[in-house]
Design a protein around this nucleic acid. Structure first.
Length: 492
RNA sequence: GGCGCUAUCGUCUAACGGUUAGGACGGAGCCCUCUCAAGGCUCAAAUACGGGUUCGAUUCCCGUUAGCGCUACCA
């Protein structure tokens, strides 16, 4: 076993099924982090050996999403390295040749069995409560028959010949020593009848040829690892180190899947999750730094990450915590960064026609920062910064808009009109309001004016401090809105 | 069914034989306060079960249970 940790080379080897699964994102991330940490290479390899699952544009999308997440690969499609091509469908000759070598050496054999026979055999085995396993009918075929079959053009697969009665052991970085009895291992198909390799053959050959030192992949591969170990031995190659990651789970603890929420990274991206948050969140699903820090940038993760601190148990994808993380990462963004995102969001919203200066938007950002988890929350939670309210929350009207409120609002407007700047300070508004309040005999001391004013200018009862809102909207707009409110709000 | 993996608050997790079992999200409450947030403080909440080993087990071993994975010419 190769235990060298120098020249670390790892790979992320997804099959292009159309989108990047969040579990895949985590696998890719751990590989990336491990490579970064050891100044090694991170290879992207496309495992497209199942022609029936071909999806148009999937590879491009995968690369795009990986890049979005910040996981740049050192070698792979569109970034050739010394071990390409990195797309398995372009390496068919390599697999065929290796499979033939195995056949020649008696470590694999051709199997002409029809899928009908295989199916019947499995059914029978199931009936007898045996574990389904190829019965090796074709292993005993005389050479002449094999020749004849080939001549006749009968299609065949190549199966590996698993040795009898042997214990296959291997070390896993995360799970320590694991062992399997070879008798339980099926004579796995290595080369399909269409000439394509199966995953097992292709991944072993490629990992060797691409000089992969550490195979970091999902736990679903643990059971087939003994087959891979055997193949390395058949070829006379050293095995890489293995690390099988715990699975990501649905809330019901089954393997994370569609139907129970979003699994595509693209979906989260579309919903407005920050890549920083998503990456940080999945990093912590199975790994922790050993202390109580939780918020990490990709760079910080790369500095801290180690496979030794990866746990063994599956983890449920908890959306609440992801949302919180998005909030934490969003508030760490600079005003400039938020501004850019907010403008982008506005450009695709119903407010797109409005001309809003950067200066104005900076004020909105300052006021809303601690109240938003997503950039789109700026529009959803405070639309009144982008458009005057057209409706007034009934519940708030009922609670805050009393019989004498319109009269009070008139007084307030009068006072605001005396403000000599179009954009008075927060303090100016505050003074004006309290002066108005002082002139009113019936006003209650707290919020007698504040709440109805908030309702008048925003349409709702929640939001930043009233004087911040007035300051942002400015004198004239505030006055306009209050007058409109006086006209439109009817006591129910 | 067989084989394998796993098992600490609802969730993510810390503890690498000795802790009042810690933190975070979520929940509850209090403080702050013009509302909503944010922030501060507090509370509720876990070692699946049964055996060992040991002076002492969350921790090591065995079993049970449960969950998950694999069991394809899919990856």
């Amino acid at each position: 076993m190769d235990t060298s940790t120098n020249n670390v080379r790892v790979r992320f080897a997804p099959s292009p099924t159309g989108y990047l699964h969040v579990g895949g994102l985590r696998t890719a991330l751990y590989n990336y982090l491990f490579a970064q940490r050891h100044q090694g290479a991170f290879v992207l390899r496309i495992e497209d050996t199942d022609r029936s699952r071909y999806v148009e544009g999937a590879v491009e999308n995968l690369i795009e999403t990986l890049t979005w997440a910040g996981l740049e690969y050192d070698e792979g499609p569109l970034r050739d390295g010394p071990f390409g091509p990195y797309i398995q469908s372009e390496r068919l000759e390599i697999y065929r040749e290796h499979a033939n070598n195995l056949v020649r050496e008696g470590k694999a054999y051709r199997c002409f069995c029809s899928s009908d026979r295989l199916e019947a055999m499995r059914k029978e085995q199931e009936k007898q409560k045996l574990s389904p396993k190829y019965d090796r009918l074709c292993l005993r075929l005389p050479p002449q028959v094999i020749e004849e079959n080939i001549q006749k053009g009968i299609s065949f697969v190549v199966r590996m010949r698993v040795p009898d009665n042997e214990i296959i052991r291997f070390h896993d970085i995360i799970r320590d020593d694991v062992e399997f009895l070879s008798d339980r291992i099926d004579d796995q198909v290595l080369l399909k009848s269409d000439g394509y390799p199966t995953y097992h053959l292709a991944n072993v050959i490629d990992d060797h040829l691409m000089q992969i030192t550490h195979v970091i992949r999902g736990e679903e591969w643990l059971s087939s690892t003994p087959k891979h170990i055997l193949l390395y031995r058949f070829f006379g190659w050293n095995t890489p180190m293995f690390a099988h990651l715990p699975l990501l789970l649905n809330p019901d603890r089954s393997k994370l899947s569609k139907r129970q929420g979003d699994v595509a990274v693209e979906e989260y991206r579309a919903k407005g999750y920050l890549k920083e948050a998503l990456v940080n969140f999945v990093a912590l699903l199975g790994w922790n730094p050993g202390d109580e820090r939780e918020i990490f940038s990709l760079e910080e993760l790369a500095k801290e990450f180690s496979l030794e601190r990866v746990g063994k148990a599956g983890a449920i994808f908890n959306i609440d915590k992801l949302n919180w993380m998005n909030f934490e990462h969003l508030r760490r963004k600079s005003d400039q960064e938020v501004l850019a995102m907010l403008k982008e969001e506005l450009a695709h919203s119903r407010f797109r026609e409005h001309q809003l200066s950067d200066e104005y938007l900076f004020k909105v950002i300052a006021a809303m920062r601690v109240r938003v988890s997503f950039v789109k929350d700026y529009l959803e939670k405070s639309p009144y910064f982008f458009e005057a309210p057209t409706e007034f929350d009934h519940e708030v009207v009922r609670k805050r808009w009393k019989r004498d409120t319109p009269a009070h609002m008139e007084q307030l407007v009068k006072m605001f009109r005396k403000l000599n700047k179009p954009f008075p300070t927060k303090e100016d508004f505050e003074k004006a309001l309290y002066e108005t309040l002082g002139n009113l005999i019936t006003a209650s001391p707290d919020g007698g004016l504040i709440h109805p004013t908030r309702l008048a200018i925003s349409g709702v009862g929640v939001g930043p401090g009233l004087f911040d809102m007035l300051y942002i909207l400015g004198r004239d707009e505030s006055i306009r809105r209050i007058i409109t409110a006086i006209e439109k709000i009817r006591i129910e």
